[in-house]
Nucleic acid binder design. Structure first.
Length: 445
RNA sequence: GCGGGAGUAGCUCAACUGGUUAGAGCGCGUCCCUGUCACGGACGAGGUUGCGGGUUCAAGUCCCGUCUCUCGCGCCA
């Protein structure tokens, strides 16, 4: 007999079918046993009657046992229907029950858990409905991201994760012992490679893991995260990039509205609405605004603190009904060497951050595309251009005005779904003390 | 790295100012139950109170050290 998905059982009323899946819960009535079985498509109740021949096995099964069952799809009697659950109007009258695998679980699935208990048991806890919803949404974000950029003529490429010298300068870098006692590094960003690829394909994007060796313990940092990058040529300035990112977010949210409604309902979260134009404000203007409204004077700072980012998001929501806000024109001193200095606003760059529901989810901007200008930028940061001559070949060979963005996928997912810690939106988060399991103490510095 | 909070059963938590044998719910085990759907009922097992030291007649509770978690900050996506 061929396996039928539980989600298709409504069409099989009266028929005897083969269903395979996991036991969610067993309800033993003594002479008869009920259980809920789930597969990737849904859940249905099975009922094992005393004379079915399966009753002995039915008493043996426990939560998370993997089973193969044969049974007749029956409509339930009127008084035994349950409108609150999927397939509450039908049930499987079990005629055959085989245990494919036993299970021994550390605790019940779906209950409230402390974050570290959840993380210590990920192979099990990821099976919970909430977690499946989170990572289904995440998968759909990536799918929509690919579809949108593909439609805009972008070509996807795979960026290397093992790199030589770290010329990029965003964040602390993990060292890797390479062959013949050489030292390599884990990429903190695909930045330099995506710029090189603009010289090849003009419009490119990549989604992949990047690594930051910073010892912070916050709700928005992990050592390994997924960066959704894009970079494209022949732009007027950074506003072209912001406009395209706005369109991309609109496409992603539209996709989620179409495909992930149940997941958002389960998480009690709202899919953000993207305004026609996401508000954009210069960093200095934001600082003036904060000073005027809250008397907090950060006008000499080169960046916003988390508290200020939250305030700006509330302001954007209040004044512009937007969950998003662009902050532009960060000082040259604050940005990497390749950031493009605004010729009409010297000392400041044509760069931006995108804040979403209180947190920074994107950094982007126009880049220096002129070889001499780029080398000058590097020297201005005290960097030796010889150390990244490989990258500079792209510019020597002719590069168009270009720019792009990097989006933190897990941060975006977390804020979309109202998760308070980015680790909940990271499948297998790496942090200071944990890579799946706790790192042993004598391994640490 | 710094600052706040925390660490008690497999899980989630309780235990007033130090005071008898550290409790509950869920889970787990045995038994009862033919319409349950978080099934219900009876009984039971399960603890070095993170670890090490100290104060005290007496420590889960107070002190010191240490490890870990968590929240905030620096930094960043």
């Amino acid at each position: 007999m061929e396996r039928i998905l539980i989600g298709n059982l409504q069409e099989k009323k009266g028929e005897t079918v083969l269903v395979q899946g996991w036991i969610s819960v067993r309800r033993d009535q003594g002479k008869m046993v009920f259980f809920d079985i789930r597969d990737r498509s849904g859940t249905v109740q099975g009922v094992v009657l005393p004379n079915s021949g399966a009753i002995e096995t039915a008493k043996e099964i426990r939560s998370e046992y993997v089973v193969s069952v044969e049974g007749k799809v029956n409509e339930r009697p009127e008084k035994n229907r349950n409108a609150k659950v999927q397939n509450g109007d039908i049930e499987l009258e079990i005629t055959g029950l085989t245990i494919l695998a036993k299970a021994e679980i550390p605790f019940e699935l779906g209950g409230e858990l402390n974050l570290d208990t959840y993380l210590d048991h990920l192979p099990f806890t990821l099976r919970a409905e909430k977690q499946k919803a989170i990572f289904k949404v995440q998968a759909e974000i990536i799918k929509a991201y690919r579809a949108f950029l593909g439609g805009q003529g972008f070509i996807e490429f795979q960026s290397p994760k093992l790199i030589g010298d770290d010329a990029e300068g965003s964040g602390e870098v993990f060292e890797v012992k390479y062959l013949y006692d050489k030292i390599a590094h884990l990429a903190t960003s695909p930045q330099l490679y995506k710029q090189i690829m603009v010289g090849v394909f003009e419009r490119v994007f990549t989604t992949g893991n990047v690594y930051r060796a910073e010892k912070h313990s916050t709700t928005r940092h992990v050592s390994e995260y997924t960066s959704m990058d894009a970079e494209f040529g022949f732009i007027k300035d950074h506003t072209d990039i912001m406009a395209l990112e706005t369109e991309m977010l609109r496409a992603v949210c539209g996709h989620l509205t179409a495909l992930c409604k149940t997941e958002f309902e389960l998480m009690r979260a709202d899919i953000p609405t993207i305004p026609e134009r996401i508000p954009a404000i210069k960093l200095r203007e934001a600082q003036e605004l904060i000073f005027k409204e809250t008397k907090k004077d950060i006008r000499k700072e080169p960046d916003l603190e988390p508290e200020d980012e939250r305030w700006m998001c509330e302001w954007s929501k209040r004044e512009h009904n937007s969950d998003f806000i662009f902050i532009t024109h960060y000082p040259v001193s604050k940005r990497p060497f390749y950031a493009y200095e605004d010729e009409n606003d010297l000392g400041y760059t044509k760069s931006f951050d995108l804040l979403f529901r209180g947190i920074e989810i994107t950094t982007g901007g126009q880049r220096r595309h002129n070889y001499e200008n780029l080398v000058a930028g590097a020297k201005g940061k005290g960097l030796n251009p010889d150390n990244f001559s490989f990258y500079l070949q792209a510019f020597k060979s002719g590069m168009p005005p270009h720019g792009g963005w990097g989006i933190g996928l897990e941060r975006l997912t977390a804020k979309m779904l109202g998760l308070s810690n980015v680790k909940e939106a990271t499948l297998f988060p790496r942090d200071i003390n944990r890579i799946d399991t706790l790192l042993s103490t004598d391994q640490k510095e």
